[in-house]
Amino acid sequence: MKIAITTSGNDLNAPLDTRFGRAPMFMIYDLETKTFEVVDNEQNLNAAQGAGIQSAQNIARQGVKALVTGHCGPKAFRVLEAAGIKIYNTSAATVSEALELYVAGNLAESTNADVEGHWV
């Protein structure tokens, strides 16, 4: 199973980015093979609106089943829910820390958007 983690870097020691919609990158981590690839999300950094929707489509295309991030807004939440992707919020500082928390089962599944949308 693959999971997505929001980050601003390229490896496991990189900082976790607390934003979902406007995270610069997603680390797509494969829990079985313990390998990862990094997917660019740059196009969303300057999106006027709809960044969360587009990010959700972006990781859904990667076939992930879970997302570990800082915060998730209402529109992204709806898309992720429709795509069957579970959301886990964390305040972990790095990607590896977030990954450990997830693997150890220490993160609770989010049942609602935890922040307001930035637009409307």
Binding site: Q49, G50, I53, Q54, A56, Q57, A60, K75, R78, V79, A82, A83, G84, W119, V120
Partner: peptide
Amino acid sequence: CSKFCEYHAIVTFGTAPLIFPEM
């Protein structure tokens, strides 16, 4: 529909689309 929409107001995942009226 989802491919066409510049504003991500309509989004699909192989099922009936989600609509975001405010977009």
